[in-house]
């Protein structure tokens, strides 16, 4: 294709968009709305997953040792627990460390003066596991170790959170797949309509000796451009909306830790939306024009 030809095809594309402004507007706004939904869903899922993961990270178990356990045995227990499969962290909370916390917590509620400075607390470990569903099993293993008095584990709650995380992930993936399919159908139909409205032109172009590529290229460029512009608009709206919402929630519900509107979030959203928009625009316009090419 010569430079002159490329220039003509580009000009044709822009003239086509300008003179069919209403159809272009309809196509772009439809694409914007469906991609906005897709982006919104992805943001929601990302936040839910993030929340579930933060929550899961907070689950840990407390392993209490027998009081007056010798330091050497305590250290070997620490090594043993740390080496258990699935354990990601084991931190010692010595009784000296625990005592002031304990007193502070009970201040005023219980009279501790009759202890006369004696520390009744045992040493303990704070243990974290990688997989919340295995917390119960790990706790049982630890219980059987010598020197361990009791294990306070939260495996039931932990398992509930873990299955919730799984459900959010699975439902989210399904939702994204469905919405991509819906977006594909809507975008495809809109672009097909813009081509359908001009199907007679395609026949005329062929009659005056335009090659198929010559007829097809402006339509395909137009469709791709519609997809890209629609995706850009969706991104802008999504970005503005999310930043606003994030600020609002941080002020009124500070315990909800939303993902900050960071560069990586913007990148992941824009790659998907621009990809889906432009890809669908290109594919559906090419297919639609192809239908009306008679030779």
């Amino acid at each position: 294709m010569s430079l002159r030809h490329a220039e003509f095809l580009l000009l044709e594309t822009f003239t086509g968009i300008r003179r069919n402004a209403f159809m272009s507007l309809a196509a772009v706004s439809t694409i914007t709305v469906s991609l906005l939904l897709l982006g919104g869903l992805r943001l929601t899922i990302a936040n839910l997953t993030q929340m579930a993961e933060t929550l899961a990270g907070r689950f840990e178990m407390r392993v209490f040792l027998h009081t007056h356990l010798p330091t050497a045995q305590r250290d070997s227990l620490w090594k043993e627990i740390s080496a258990l499969p699935g354990v990601t962290g084991c931190r010692l909370v010595s009784k000296e460390e625990a005592w002031p916390q304990f007193r502070r917590r009970l201040q005023g509620a219980v009279d501790l003066t009759d202890l006369e400075g004696e520390n009744p607390l045992p040493d303990s470990f704070v243990v974290r596991v990688a997989d919340l569903t295995r917390m119960g099993a790990v706790a049982d293993q630890i219980r059987r170790l010598r020197g361990v008095d009791d294990v306070l584990d939260t495996h039931e709650e932990a398992e509930r959170v873990a299955s919730l995380t799984r459900a959010v992930r699975a439902g989210g993936t399904l939702g994204v797949v469905l919405l991509v399919a819906v977006a594909a159908i809507i975008v495809g139909n809109t672009i097909r309509l813009t081509v359908y409205a001009r199907r007679k032109e395609i026949g005329i172009m062929q009659l005056v000796g335009a090659t198929n590529a010559c007829v097809q290229t402006p339509f395909v460029l137009e469709g791709t451009l519609h997809g890209l512009v629609g995706a850009l608009l969706a991104l802008l709206l999504l970005g503005a909306g999310y930043t606003y919402l994030h600020d609002q929630i941080r002020q009124s519900l500070p315990f909800l830790e939303l993902l900050p509107p960071s560069t990586s979030l913007v990148l992941s959203q824009s790659s998907i939306l621009l990809g889906v928009g432009a890809g669908l625009g290109l594919l559906t316009s090419a297919l639609s024009v192809h239908r009306y090419l008679r030779t």
Partner: peptide
Amino acid sequence: RLLPQKTVYENVAYALHVI
């Protein structure tokens, strides 16, 4: 069978552009 979105000039020119 003229292209409705093109002027007379552009309709006539189109046949030359495509070649």
